[in-house]
Design a binder for these strands. Structure first.
Length: 474
RNA sequence: GGCCCCGUCGUCUAGCGGUCAGGACGUCAGGUUUUCAUCCUGAAUAUCGCGGGUUCGAUUCCCGCCGGGGUCACCA
């Protein structure tokens, strides 16, 4: 492979926002191209205008942008093999379709939709009966002259096998008798996927076709087209599917979101990339945190699995929590902006982030964990007494000691000093450390689980800490 | 149903004729911590889908079965 110039492509259809399994294929295509110093491009396969969803293309580009899967050539960026939108290449396809008809590799089919529908009703698994395959040239001319609508079908070989070496699946073989005479050009003159991919992949000099295993069965048609056109076919790499927890194909039903959905849920692009890489791939123990450039480095197409992988959110959570810890504070702070109220002061958020980030699995975990720093919680004296394990009288006394201890700390309101002074006070209070500090914790936060108590007090500030402490029994 | 692909702990996987079948996530236990989380340590979890072969020896090779998946559009 070292002697072929590698060019891969991600060829989505703008029929919706691609789910995460789809994006994994894009990742693999990107990694393969970059590993060999080649190009990665995006081509929009919009040959089915009816299914097109407005804005989908933009979302697709956005996903690649977010993950860093930046194309060298694309509809928006352009390139010397453009246009990269199939609906703008219709003339090109027609030219080659005509060529195929002229050389006898394809033929006109005048069958009505009703006839085809009938065929399907008779046998839902039936292939086209090749009715028009044997039309005489006189019959064809007559129909054409009549202005009869037609489609162009591939004249597939009827015997033998189509065999090829798949980069991830190994040797693959299909009996030609199983292959349908696929429609290449629709009645409206627009090519069908099978035709457009072949033409474009060749014209755009794609060296490796990376796509999901659902395309394995249509590969014989593609290979037939390459052969009759006299073109060298690209290397085929059919990657496995992503399955839901119930082992069925990942779908919306499983909450199969797009990358955009995961970003909204507070997952970092780094973690998503990392997660996607390890789903159906192996590198060490599949838990290393890898950046995109590092992935390019270690990527090995031979290590792509052949079995479908089940989407496991727990692993994504793990990877995300690790990336949250690893990201520089400033960067993490920026990513957090979409997940917090805009009126929370930056400096305070940053302080809290340092305390909270090792407790976060997603960016969404921050706001609930930081909320009480900004809005004083309502704390009942009962909830404090539960923690203190002493009578209200004794607890009040301890709180007064704590309050006056804190008041004595002036310019030295640090975690270390608080710890030192309050620990000393606690020793003579008759309260155990747990009783003493858990009651204070609940008093200032309203909860029994928070970051280290004294750190919280520092973030709160002396005034606010005293205020919350004295409020409990007032 | 035809054709094609796949089958190692719950999950992602290592393994490429002789291994105590290894790691990671998750789970459980312990340690650290005034709490939670992190972190550290340890443990459990796979008769390698089943049944036949081949072989001195099969998770590794072959066959059958079973199970799962894909596909059979003028959708991609």
């Amino acid at each position: 492979m070292a002697d072929t110039h590698v060019r891969t492509r991600y060829a989505p259809s703008p029929t919706g926002i691609p789910h995460i399994g789809n994006t994994r294929t894009a990742l693999y295509a990107y990694l393969l191209a970059k590993k060999y110093g080649g190009e990665f491009l995006i081509r929009l396969e919009d040959t089915d205008a009816d299914r097109e969803v407005e804005g989908a293309a933009e979302k697709i580009y956005e996903i690649n942008e977010i993950l860093g899967l930046i194309p060298d050539e694309s509809p928006t960026k352009g390139g010397s093999f453009g246009p990269y939108i199939q609906s703008q290449r219709l003339e090109i396809y027609r030219k080659y379709a005509q060529l195929l008809v002229d050389t006898g590799a394809a033929y006109y089919c005048f069958c009505s939709e009703e006839r085809l529908k009938q065929l399907h009703e008779n046998n839902q698994f039936a292939k086209y009966d090749k009715h028009c395959r044997h039309l005489t040239s006189a019959e064809i001319k007559k129909q054409i002259d009549l202005g009869a609508p037609f489609v162009i079908r591939a004249k597939m070989p009827e015997t033998g096998f189509t065999t090829w070496h798949d980069l991830v699946q190994g040797k693959l073989s299909m009996p030609n008798s199983e292959v349908d005479d696929k429609v290449l050009i629709k009645r409206n003159g627009v090519p069908v996927y099978h035709f457009a991919v072949v033409i474009d992949d060749h014209l755009m000099e794609i060296s490796h076709v990376i796509r999901g295993v659902e395309y394995i069965v249509s590969t014989p048609v593609h290979l037939y087209l390459y052969e009759t056109l006299g073109w060298e076919p690209p290397v085929m790499a059919h990657v496995p599917l992503l399955l839901g927890p119930d082992k069925s194909k990942l779908s919306k039903r499983h909450g199969a979101k797009s990358v955009l959905g995961y970003i909204e849920d507070g997952y970092l692009s780094e973690a998503i990339n990392n997660f996607l890489l390890y789903l159906g791939f192996s590198y060490k123990d599949n838990s290393d945190l890898l950046t995109l450039p590092e992935m390019v480095e270690i990527f090995d197409e031979k290590k792509i699995q052949r079995q479908n992988a089940i989407f496991d959110i727990q692993r994504l959570n793990y990877l995300n929590s690790q990336w949250i810890k690893r990201l520089p504070s400033e960067e993490l702070f920026h990513r957090l902006s979409a997940f917090i109220p805009s009126d929370w002061p930056d400096e305070k958020v940053k302080q809290i982030l340092e305390l909270v980030k090792e407790r976060m699995f997603t960016l969404r975990d921050f706001a609930p964990a930081a909320e009480y720093f900004f809005n004083a919680p309502t704390v009942s004296s009962e909830s404090v007494l539960v923690q203190s394990g002493h009578s209200e009288e004794e607890t009040k006394k301890w709180f007064n000691i704590a309050i006056s201890t804190i008041e004595r700390l002036s310019s030295t309101f640090t975690s270390e000093n608080l710890h030192h002074e309050l620990a000393a006070a606690q020793t003579t209070s008759g309260f155990s450390p747990k009783e003493a500090f858990m009651s204070l914790r609940v008093a200032i936060s309203g909860r029994s689980a928070t970051p280290p108590l004294f750190d919280c007090m520092v973030v709160l500030g002396k005034e606010e800490t005293l205020h919350r402490l004295s409020k409990v029994f007032s």
